[in-house]
Computed example of a mutant assay.
Amino acid sequence: MSLPASELLATARQAAGHQHWPSGALYVVATPIGNLADFTLRAIHALALADAVACEDTRVSAGLLRHLGLDKPLLAVHEHNEREAAERVLERLARGERVAYVSDAGTPAISDPGAWLVARVRAAGHAVHALPGASAVVTALSAAGDGPLPGQTGSFVFAGFLPAKGRDRSARLRALADEPRSVVLFEAPHRIEALADELAQACGDRTLTLCRELTKQFEQVHTLVAAQAPAWLAEEASRRRGEFVVVLHAQAQPVVTDDAVPEAARRQLQVLMRELPLKQAVALAVELCGLPRNLLYDEALRLKGD
């Protein structure tokens, strides 16, 4: 951000100050995942209005607030103290204060702490307002281009960080290898080579997108077949530095190119239609067969007319 802090705060106030900002409420604020220019004006104004800022790491958040020209009381709320710290937040809310919550980077309560705090605040009867912003998960999916292509639904699974080692990690990897939807993983630089090796063995023919240092100066996004990932990382030391978001692309589903319904699907549809209304039979057949609804609906109408 090139504006001086005073001008930035004034711009944020002009953009968002007319909105309603209730007191006695928790404001869950997304912060940039690397590039400070991704801070929204609404988020900046929320931090400026806050009576206190609850945060994952007070050192990180103190630096962020200094960049904005703000000085606020900081409350440490991290994975090791979130339940106890929530009570301190509730005390402030009960006094009618506005409290903002930020994690170190990105949208809180996704992979970072915050979910328990939000649930506790809601249970106590206080309002929670979420301010959208940067998310490494969504950014990586956009960069990977793994959307609803033919034969895909566009849905995805967010797996976050896998267990560091042992049976839990192996079991989780096996499950993800069988997952037909897109899978988004986080990984630290010292474990990215191990993850690449494991994905190459478990699902070598699936497409993989490696996102390194998203939104930062040396951002790198590379798509390849999972079996090729270990060799690609080994080619240059710089490719193994920084924080990673890994997208395991959805498994390609068979695409029906003509109007023919496979005989097995037709028999299944006939059995379902004996017991269920037509629409319900078609809906269940779609789930079981994975064929397009329109194709099975037309076939059901033909079978009903026979």
Rank of each mutant, 00 (worst) to 15 (best):
Q152S: 15
C289I: 03
A260Y: 12
L233W: 12
L3G: 04
V255F: 09
V221H: 11
H80G: 08
K165L: 11
T107L: 06
D71K: 06
A115R: 12
Q270M: 11
V183N: 07
A43V: 06
A52S: 14
G63Q: 04
F158Y: 15
E213M: 12
H190R: 15
D205L: 08
P108W: 05
E91G: 14
S170P: 00
A50V: 03
L162G: 08
E97C: 08
L278A: 08
L214Y: 09
E97K: 01
V247W: 02
A12F: 04
V102S: 03
L173K: 02
S135R: 07
V271M: 14
L9T: 05
L70E: 00
A144S: 15
A265K: 00
E7L: 13
R42E: 15
G24T: 02
R172F: 00
E193F: 04
L141W: 08
E243K: 00
A285L: 08
S182W: 07
A171L: 12
A25N: 06
R240C: 14
D298F: 15
A188P: 04
A115F: 14
D51T: 07
L41W: 06
P189N: 15
L3N: 03
V282L: 05
L284K: 10
R240M: 12
L301E: 12
K279T: 02
V255D: 01
A30E: 05
A136Y: 01
E97L: 06
A109F: 10
G106D: 01
H20S: 08
D104P: 06
H190G: 14
A227Q: 13
G242N: 09
A12T: 04
P113N: 12
F186K: 06
R212D: 05
A86M: 05
V255Y: 08
L68C: 07
A52T: 13
L74W: 01
Q217N: 10
R241H: 13
N81R: 09
A43N: 05
Q228T: 03
L70M: 09
E7I: 09
N294A: 15
L233K: 10
A200G: 10
L141G: 06
A54K: 01
T11L: 15
V29M: 07
A264W: 07
L269R: 02
A171W: 00
A171G: 05
N81S: 09
E275M: 10
L199Q: 05
W232G: 03
A10P: 02
T31R: 10
